[in-house]
């Protein structure tokens, strides 16, 4: 600012030089940021190309069978991705079922109901959860959480639902402690901070005048939250949920420790299973045959596609919400 102010009074070539300098720095700035953005596209394209390239052998050998076969047999070199796909979807689903209501609930409590002295401690505690490395979650899950579930929750679920048709096979024993459910619960804890911190920030961004006028009309806290705060912020809330889902789908270390790593699909969510990322992490180092390696890379490609589909659905939902809100 001072440069320009000084330039106005001075001779015109000094002014020209300043302007040239500004144009130059502007161009430099534009090009650096553009390069940074292009770098993302480039690395994404690079990943996609190498995944497709690496998985060609698996897909040409097994074809569509790869996606619908449950068999994963390194001895006979017969590989199918269905069990890891199922495990990935099932654990993420359990995680979201728990983390979304709890995470949004914490955010609502923190912004609308929480007594001021408690607000910071709870907020910081939730953010600290996000800072814990996933290997710590895995070790804690294996040594503390799984034995706890084996003694308490799992026997309770098995005995409670043993005579309920449908649910009895969903909660069939024996209680191992580790399994699909345990992995889902750990994932729920891991993605909770993502949902809570984003939701808290966007809830806090709702203009006070909206909330105050709603309260003024005699609405209860529940009504203000469900009819004013949530509709105002739903786009960001959906974004938070999708971010959390993305993390849950790809989480590797913590899941590997507690899921049981069995390439099987079982009706019971207490049984061991596996996820795509856990299977890759477990088996990649020792995968000797070309077909084995290629099948693991193909698993990676499948996860890539699943994540892409999830993002696409999220975009679609957001677009729908916008048109609805426009009406």
């Amino acid at each position: 600012m001072t440069d320009i102010a000084a330039g106005e009074g001075a001779q015109s070539d000094g002014r020209q030089a300043s302007l040239r300098r500004f144009a130059l720095s502007d161009a430099a700035f534009r090009n650096t940021t553009r390069a940074a953005a292009l770098l993302v596209l480039l690395s994404l394209a690079g990943v996609a190309v190498s995944l497709v390239n690496g998985s060609l052998l698996a897909f040409s050998t097994f074809g569509f069978e790869f996606l619908v076969s449950e068999s994963w047999n390194p001895v006979k070199e017969k590989f199918g991705a269905l069990a890891p796909i199922y495990g990935t979807v099932a654990t993420s689903l359990i995680a979201m079922l728990i983390a979304v209501p709890v995470g949004v609930g914490i955010a609502i409590f923190l912004t609308e109901l929480c007594p001021r002295p408690l607000r910071r401690p709870i907020g910081i505690a939730v953010e600290l959860l996000a800072g814990i490395p996933s290997i710590i979650y895995g070790i804690w899950g294996l040594f503390v959480f799984a034995p706890f579930l084996q003694r308490t929750l799992q026997p309770f679920l098995i005995s409670t639902f043993s005579h309920v048709p449908g649910l009895s096979s969903l909660f069939a024993g024996p209680p191992y402690g580790i399994g699909i459910l345990t992995a889902g619960l750990i994932l729920a804890i891991m993605v909770l901070p993502f949902i809570t911190s984003i939701c808290r920030d966007v809830f806090a961004s709702v203009p006070p005048v909206l909330k105050e006028s709603a309260y003024g009309l005699g609405l209860t806290t529940w009504e203000v939250t469900s009819r004013v705060v949530l509709p105002y912020t739903r786009v960001a809330v959906v974004g938070a949920v999708m971010l959390a889902l993305g993390r849950a789908l790809g989480e590797t270390m913590a899941v590997t420790f507690v899921i049981g790593n069995a390439h099987r699909i079982t009706a019971s969510i207490l049984a061991p299973g596996t996820t795509i990322s856990a299977a890759i992490a477990n088996e990649f180092t020792e995968a000797t045959g070309d077909l084995y390696t290629s099948s693991l890379i193909a698993l990676g490609l499948v996860l890539f596609v699943i994540t892409f589909i999830v993002l696409a659905i999220a975009r679609l939902m957001l677009a729908r919400l916008r048109t609805k809100a426009g009406r």
Binding site: V75, F143, G177, N261, T274, E286
Partner: peptide
């Protein structure tokens, strides 16, 4: 069959000797 990793008919998979030791120790 005989291989560095096989299609196990039953059971829980654990990573590494230490993983198997830990799982057996607490199951």
């Amino acid at each position: 069959g005989v291989e560095a990793s096989v299609e196990w008919p039953v059971g829980i998979g654990a990573k590494g000797n230490e993983g198997v030791a830990a799982n057996v120790g607490q199951t």
